[in-house]
């Protein structure tokens, strides 16, 4: 197994970069579309009703199936002025993950908005670590892109595993990658917790100063 590592590691790290890219783009779309939805949900009843319907539908949509739907329904390219932009597997993955991100931002955004209006800054500010948590969830979920041939980390791992001769070697490779994701995710969540504690501390200090 060790002999494949020099070839595997650079490809794997490039794959991780693709996972991070998918998560970042999905979250960006989530903020752009989920933000207005959160505002509508926090507004009056008549605005909240249709927005609530949209968010409920997005929550119910299974991202993996949405990805295949988009992959087969989207045109192969779009023309913007004279520019032709290809829409491939990566676009389908980002949009499918954005479905989750939009619902997440809308759900958490409305809680933050209501808390802010009620003067509960401590709750409102939790929206930020929530976003960071959603980012790491999206990084994990972006591994489904392997199904449509996007060269992210799990895809690279599966291709490498296919060429390993023995079960033992394949198990070692899978465990190594699982360990990598565990370290990545735990570090990410630890950073989120740290961020949350700092925000809570700063708010407490501000409140103490105000009184």
């Amino acid at each position: 197994m060790i002999e494949i590592l020099p070839e595997f590691l650079p490809r794997f790290l490039a794959g991780v970069a693709v996972n991070l890219q998918i998560a970042a783009l999905s979250l960006l779309l989530g903020l752009l579309l989920g933000g207005p939805l959160a505002l509508l949900l926090a507004a009056g009843r008549w605005a909240a009703l249709p927005a609530g319907g949209v968010v409920a539908a997005l929550r119910a949509a299974p991202s993996f199936v949405v990805m295949f739907f988009l992959l087969n329904v989207l045109p192969k390219e779009v023309a913007l002025g004279g520019l032709r932009i290809p829409l491939g597997g990566l676009t389908a993955v980002v949009l499918a993950q954005a479905v989750y991100a939009v619902a997440y931002v809308a759900d958490n955004g409305v809680v933050a908005l209501r808390a802010q209006r009620a003067g509960d800054a401590a709750t409102a500010v939790l929206f930020l670590p929530g976003l960071a948590r959603a980012f790491f969830v999206l990084v994990m979920a972006s591994a489904t892109a392997a199904a449509v041939g996007t060269p992210e980390a799990v895809f690279v791992t599966l291709r490498a595993a296919e060429r390993l001769p023995s079960l033992g070697d394949r198990v070692q490779l899978f465990l190594l990658v699982m360990l990598f994701f565990t370290v990545l995710l735990r570090s990410g969540f630890a950073a989120v917790t740290l961020l949350r504690h700092r925000l809570e501390r700063r708010l407490a200090e501000d409140a103490a100063l105000a009184t």
Binding site: A143, T144, V154, A161, F174, V177, M178, F181, L185, R186
Partner: peptide, 17 residues
């Protein structure tokens, strides 16, 4: 903890292997 932090796709292929 290890299971939580591993993508489901990877777990499926681990079991498949």
């Amino acid at each position: 903890t290890l299971l939580q932090c591993s993508p489901l796709v990877l777990l499926l292929f681990f079991a498949y292997a």
